[in-house]
Design a protein around this nucleic acid. Structure first.
Length: 475
RNA sequence: GGCCCCGUCGUCUAGUGGCCUAGGAUAUCUGGUUCUCAUCCAGAAGAUCAGGGGUUCGAAUCCCCUCGGGGCUACCA
C-alpha cells in the first residue's frame, strides 16, 4: 500500500512551496488508495516557533488535505511528533555505531569552525575532516563516561558511489567521497533531520518520499543509513522548486509565501489547490479547471515536471475568479463571512452578492465593491456628476426630472429602465450619460454593478434620498 | 569553488524521432455584447524549442560541448 507523508518543521508559517509538494503527496496517496500521514519534525529546538505547528494544521484543514495518521487523528505508528520519539533515534544512532556505520565525534563547534575556515582559505570544500572517525571504542567510552559532549556522525564509505532512481529525475549518482560525515545525533540528544527522517519513514512504513528538490543532494546520506540498517529504501520523487518572479527560491520579498496569508487575502482553497497542483505537474487532458476529486483521479508522479516553476499571481487570480463565479450564492455568502463586519445585514449581503459575483477576484473584494450599499452617507467629488460638456444647471435639471420620473415609476427593473431611457431621449441626453450621472449620485463612483439592479437593492427610499443629496451638492 | 539538478511564447505548460511552418491556458492588445466596471464571446500578437556541433532520409524530442538558471555544501530543516 502506498504511504506518503508531509513532514513539516514548525519553524514558521506554512510555506506555499511546501504546500504545493504536500498537494502532490496527498493527491498521490489518494489516487493510489493509500495513506497520507502528517508528521511534525520538531528536532531543532532553537528554530522552533511557538504556534507554528497549530498554523500548519489549521492550514491543511482549511485546504481540505485531511491526513489519515498524525497529530489529532492518531494511528498505529505514533507518536507523530518527533520530539516525542527521541529515545528511538538515540537507540538507532547507537545501533549504527555498534554496526560500525557511525561514530562518536567529540569535536567542539569551535574546532569545526576553524577547520572550515582553513579549508575555505585553501579553496577546499568545507566538510568534516574525520578527526574522530577512528577513535577506539575504549577511548570513546572513557570520554563518554566523563560526560564529554559528543555527537554521532555517519561513517560514509570512502569509496564507491551511491545512486538511486528518482521517479521524476531518473538515475542520480553521487560519489561517496563527496559526501560529508553527516551529524546524525546532536549533542543535545536530538536527531538531525537526516537521522529522524529515515528512522521515522522506516518505522511508519512510508514507501514514497515525495519532497522538494532542495533535498536531492542529501538523499544519498539517507540511502546510506537505510543500507547500514538493512532497511528497504523508499521510492523517491523530488519535485521542482517554486521560484519567485526573479527566478530565485520563493521568499517573502516576492509577496505572500504563507498559506494562511492566502486564506486571509480571500483566496478559495479549491482555487489554490487547483493552481498549485498545476505548478510542476500537468494532467494529460488539455484543460485547467480541476476539482480536488478530478485531480486525485488524474494525478501521477510520472507527470511531475523537472524544471522549477515561477509563481504567477495573475494566474492564481484568474483561478480564484473562476471559482468565485462557480460558487452557489448561498455558499459564497458563507465564505464571505470572515471578510465582512459582523454587524452587516446578512439579508442585504445576500441581495448584493449576485450583483458583484462576476466582479470579484478575491473574497476581500466584496467590501470595496459594495460598501455604498451598507452605509448611509456616501462621499464623492461632485464633479463626477457632471458628464463631459454638461453644465451644473442642466445636470441638476436632469436629476430633478429623474427624481420625478422614478418616484412615479413602478419599482421594477423594466419600468425604471424604460422611464429613465424615455427621459434621456426627452432631454436629448445619451442614455449612458444620464445613467452615469445617476450612478454617481447613487453610489459615489463610476464603476458599479448595473444601474437598475443597484437601485432595486438600494431601495426606493435610499435611491430618492441619494438623488436629493446629489441635487444639494450641485446647488 | 565543488557536487547535483534544470533550460519550449512574459508566465504555467503540451510535446518521448515524421501528425510541429510547435498546441492550450494566463497575462497583453483589438473587436463584439453592454448604462459604467466586470463577466462572457471572437480574434491578434507572442517561442529561430538557451547556443553550437553531431547521429538520422528526418530532431524540441537521441549524443557531445558551451552558456545560462537553480539547489546543496550546519550539532537547520
Amino acid at each position: 500500500m502506498v504511504r506518503t507523508r508531509f513532514a513539516p518543521s514548525p519553524t514558521g508559517e506554512p510555506h506555499i512551496g511546501n504546500i504545493r509538494t504536500t498537494i502532490f503527496e496527498y493527491l498521490f496517496a489518494r489516487h493510489e488508495n493509500g495513506k497520507f500521514i502528517l508528521r511534525i519534525e520538531d528536532t531543532d529546538k532553537s528554530r522552533e516557533v511557538p504556534g507554528s505547528k497549530e498554523k500548519i494544521i489549521e492550514g491543511l484543514k482549511w485546504l481540505g488535505l485531511e491526513w489519515d495518521e498524525g497529530p489529532g487523528v492518531g494511528g498505529p505508528f505514533g507518536p507523530y511528533i518527533q520530539s516525542e520519539r527521541l529515545e528511538l533515534y538515540q537507540k538507532m544512532a547507537v545501533k549504527l555505531v555498534e554496526l560500525g556505520k557511525a561514530y562518536y565525534c567529540f569535536c567542539s563547534p569551535k574546532r569545526l569552525e576553524e577547520v572550515r575556515k582553513a579549508q575555505a582559505e585553501k579553496g577546499e570544500a568545507p566538510r568534516y575532516d574525520q578527526h574522530c572517525r577512528d577513535l577506539s571504542p575504549e577511548e570513546c567510552q572513557a570520554r563518554l563516561s566523563k560526560k564529554e559532549m559528543a555527537v554521532i556522525r555517519l561513517k560514509v564509505p570512502e569509496k564507491g558511489e551511491t545512486s538511486f532512481d528518482d521517479i521524476v529525475r531518473g538515475k542520480v549518482t553521487f560519489q561517496n567521497s563527496e559526501i560529508d560525515d553527516q551529524v546524525l545525533l546532536k549533542s543535545d540528544g536530538y536527531p538531525t533531520y537526516h537521522l529522524a527522517v529515515v528512522v521515522d519513514d522506516h518505522a511508519m512504513e512510508v514507501n514514497y518520499v515525495i519532497r522538494g528538490e532542495e533535498w536531492l543532494s542529501s538523499t544519498p546520506k539517507h540511502i546510506l543509513i537505510y543500507q547500514a540498517m538493512g532497511w528497504k529504501t523508499p521510492y523517491y520523487a523530488h519535485a521542482p522548486l517554486i521560484l519567485g518572479s526573479d527566478r530565485s527560491k520563493l521568499s517573502k520579498r516576492h509577496g505572500a509565501t504563507s498559506l494562511t496569508e492566502y486564506r486571509d487575502k480571500g483566496y478559495l482553497p479549491e482555487a489554490l489547490i487547483n493552481f498549485l497542483a498545476l505548478l510542476g505537474w500537468s494532467p494529460k487532458e488539455n484543460r485547467d479547471l480541476f476539482t480536488k476529486e478530478e485531480l486525485i483521479k488524474e494525478f501521477s508522479l510520472e507527470r511531475i515536471q523537472k524544471n522549477p516553476a515561477i509563481f504567477d499571481m495573475d494566474k492564481l487570480n484568474w483561478f480564484n475568479g473562476q471559482y468565485i463565479r462557480k460558487l452557489d450564492p448561498e455558499e459564497l455568502s458563507k465564505r464571505l463571512q470572515p471578510f465582512i463586519p459582523s454587524d452587516y445585514d446578512s439579508e442585504l449581503v445576500k441581495k448584493v452578492i449576485p450583483l458583484v459575483q462576476d466582479r470579484m477576484v478575491t473574497l476581500k473584494d466584496f467590501i470595496p465593491l459594495t460598501d455604498f450599499f451598507f452605509k448611509y452617507e456616501i462621499d464623492y467629488d461632485k464633479k463626477l456628476l457632471l458628464q463631459k460638456d454638461r453644465k451644473g444647471g442642466e445636470t441638476r435639471e436632469a436629476l430633478e426630472r429623474v427624481l420625478e420620473v422614478i418616484k412615479k415609476s413602478a419599482w421594477k427593473h423594466e419600468d425604471l429602465e424604460k422611464a429613465c431611457r424615455g427621459l434621456a431621449e426627452e432631454l436629448k441626453w445619451k442614455p449612458g450619460e444620464l445613467f452615469m450621472t445617476i450612478r454617481v449620485a447613487l453610489t459615489g463612483r463610476t464603476a458599479t454593478p448595473p444601474l437598475f439592479e443597484t437601485m432595486l437593492v438600494l431601495g426606493k427610499e435610499m435611491t430618492v434620498e441619494r438623488l436629493e443629496e446629489a441635487l444639494v451638492k450641485l446647488s
